[in-house]
């Protein structure tokens, strides 16, 4: 039975708006919808360029349109997503605002699909508190008259120049069987590699194929790898902060050449080894979490060796070999 893991990509993007989109967003805080002139057309929503030719448009040519408009095409959203502007069923529609040459896409809130038709007249329902975002219009509603939802906090105090965009996507990926085998074996303090039957190279980390011969490696190619090795190379990272960062102090990542093999485990964490004592040639041994610990995917090798939490000094004398440092892969 294949195991699936979920991970979410969530990031708060900050977008700069430039002169035209900025003016449009600022207009929204004033309950005004702006388009931009291109020849005898009024482009809504406005762009810095003509959408057909790419010609630069003059930000001084921005004009107010609407607030009411006519539905040109619509569709009903019976089950809104978390990204949609309304939490209950609604319509997405192309709305040609009065005075505009092109339609604006937005939500129309009518309660039921039978209230909608091409040609229907709609007007914006404004959010009471507006920040300069397309969502300052909650939705359009039937009729000619704009509405404001709740107390009106008025326009922005300064021109709007930036916009937040928060996207969250959850991905559900199968865990390749080899990774599950490796994880389970790591509970018993085993490090499993895979030997390519064609070229005999041994791969760590549950890759599942040999990139040289482009062949898949299955369970029959599994081999046990030793638990001791030598640091061949390393880096010490001074963490910078970013959303999701978990580190605050400089941390080491080392490359371990396993004894009697050609196998390097790259970018490994260390245990009980201060960053100042990390060096090429240092002898290390695998450090394991207790077998019953529930190890997440943050362990060494991105979870492949779940219970292998890192490498601990073995106390043996250093290996003196000038070629060691070149063993990166």
């Amino acid at each position: 039975m294949t195991r699936f893991v979920e991970n979410s990509i969530v990031f708060p993007y900050k977008r700069s708006l430039g002169p035209v989109i900025g003016a449009f967003m600022t207009g929204l805080t004033e309950q005004r919808i702006l388009g931009i002139r291109s020849g005898d057309q009024v482009i809504v929503p406005p762009l810095e360029w003509d959408p057909q030719t790419g010609a630069e448009l003059d930000p001084d040519g921005m004009v107010e349109v609407g607030p009411a408009g006519t539905v040109e095409s619509w569709t009903w959203v019976p089950a809104p997503s978390e990204q949609h502007p309304l939490g209950h069923p609604f319509a997405f529609a192309f709305i040609r605002l009065d005075g505009a040459s092109t339609p604006l896409l937005h939500a129309v809130d009518t309660g039921a699909p039978d209230a909608l038709r091409v040609g229907a007249r709609v007007a914006p329902r404004w959010r009471g508190s507006r920040v300069g975002h397309i969502g300052d219009i909650i939705a359009f509603v039937p009729g000619e008259q704009p509405e404001v939802d709740g107390p009106d906090s008025g326009p922005a105090e300064a021109p709007v120049t930036m916009m937040d965009y928060n996207a969250s996507i959850t991905y559900r990926n199968p865990v390749p069987p080899v990774l599950d085998r490796l994880r389970e074996a790591s509970r018993d303090q085993r490090i499993i590699g895979q030997r390519c039957p064609v070229c005999e190279r041994v791969y760590s980390g549950g890759r599942g194929y040999c990139p040289i011969d482009a062949v898949e490696l299955g369970e029959e190619q599994d081999v046990d790898l030793p638990h001791t090795g030598t640091i061949t190379n390393f880096t010490i990272v001074t963490p910078v902060q970013y959303p999701g960062q978990t580190e605050t102090e400089p941390f080491a990542r080392v490359f371990v050449l396993l004894d009697g093999t050609d196998v390097i485990l790259p970018y490994q964490p260390v245990v009980e080894l201060p960053v100042g004592e990390v060096r090429v040639g240092k002898r290390v041994a695998a450090a394991w979490a207790p077998p019953n610990d529930d190890i997440d995917d943050a362990g060494a090798m991105g979870g492949a060796y779940g219970h292998l939490i890192g490498w601990i000094p073995s106390g043996e004398p250093d290996v003196e070999d000038p070629d060691l440092v070149n063993r990166i892969f």
């Binding site: 990509i9 969530v10 990272v237 999701g244 960062q245 941390f251 943050a298």
Partner: peptide, 13 residues
């Protein structure tokens, strides 16, 4: 840094 680590901590950059 965030994108290189696909949103996870301890991104090496």
């Amino acid at each position: 840094q965030f994108a290189l680590g696909s949103g996870r901590g301890a991104s090496l950059g």
